[in-house]
Design a protein around this nucleic acid. Structure first.
Length: 260
DNA sequence: AGTACCACCTGACGGC
DNA sequence: TGCCGTCAGGTGGTAC
């Protein structure tokens, strides 16, 4: 689930349900998702404070408090947010709950518990210290080309490298490369200027279209390959059979006829 | 720099 | 029905 478009959808959900609300208490259902903090510390830091706003960078969602402190939410493979009004609506896989003074609650839900909740001093500082690349929706063509320049590995690995560009994961890397008509195992260094321009343009277009569709594959344009991610499925552009190949241990689906 | 493999986790699915 | 391997949209560490 949680690549850039999903996290952007979570951000909008958080903004509309929880920003402006004051926190009464924090309940930790599983401390496996906490990193560098504890239920006690989280409670002490958040109690009585308000969710003042949020920013997203790549796959990270930063929630700012009116105290100046900041939460970093990373959703792993199975994380999402769930707002509920009544305690019996709390999700089965709710791992951390921010209970608001109005009685509602926001859950950080994460079945596989690979997601993480952290306290950070500021979003900018964390991004800087962790060498995160520019957000995939913010990076311009020149920055995009500079960051990919001289890469020897596959273009898909480069697109998924969060230190180069932040926000693209396994699924959307496949989509961007399908739309740009570039094979995912193509060596980045062999891409000509036109191909790089196409990949940059399609990155923006694909991510924006996915956000517009609420990151729901059922609402994606018919031209997208994502809903066809299985070996032998018909290519949405030419009808030939989709192929699967492992690239850096991750399943990659592409059309051998459309993508060169 | 790039890649392979493992680990962290849970659950769904297919084969036997 | 049950056991088992495999797979899943992420990331971090280690070793080559």
């Amino acid at each position: 689930m949680p690549e850039l478009p999903d996290v952007e959808v979570f951000k909008r959900y958080l903004d509309s349900t929880s920003v402006g609300q004051r926190i009464e208490t924090v309940k930790v259902r599983s401390d496996k998702v906490l990193e560098g903090t504890t239920e006690k510390k989280l409670g002490e830091t958040l109690k009585g404070k308000m969710f003042a706003g949020s920013t997203r960078h790549g796959k990270n969602l930063f929630v700012e408090l009116d105290s100046g402190k900041c939460l970093r939410l990373h959703f792993g493979m199975t994380g999402f947010l769930h707002y509920f009004n009544d305690a019996n609506e709390e999700h089965k896989h709710s791992r951390v709950v921010f209970v608001f003074e109005n009685g509602g609650g926001l859950s950080f839900v994460c079945q596989r518990q690979l997601g993480r909740v952290f306290l950070v001093s500021s979003a900018e500082r964390w991004i800087e210290e962790n060498n995160l690349g520019p957000d995939a929706l913010e990076v311009g063509l020149s920055g995009f080309k500079e960051r990919l320049a001289g890469r020897k590995g596959s273009v898909k690995s480069a697109l998924m490298n969060q230190e180069l560009i932040a926000g693209i994961g396994n699924i959307y890397a496949d989509e961007v490369l399908f739309q740009a008509r570039v094979r995912p195992d193509k060596n980045t260094a062999l891409l000509d200027d036109k191909a790089l321009q196409r990949i940059h343009r399609k990155t923006g277009e694909v991510l924006k279209a996915a956000i517009k569709a609420g990151a729901d594959p059922e609402k994606f344009p018919h031209s997208f390959i994502i809903p066809q991610r299985s070996e032998g499925a018909p290519c949405p552009a030419c009808g030939s059979k989709i192929k699967m190949k492992k690239i850096n241990q991750r399943s990659s689906y592409f059309c051998p006829s459309c993508q060169k």
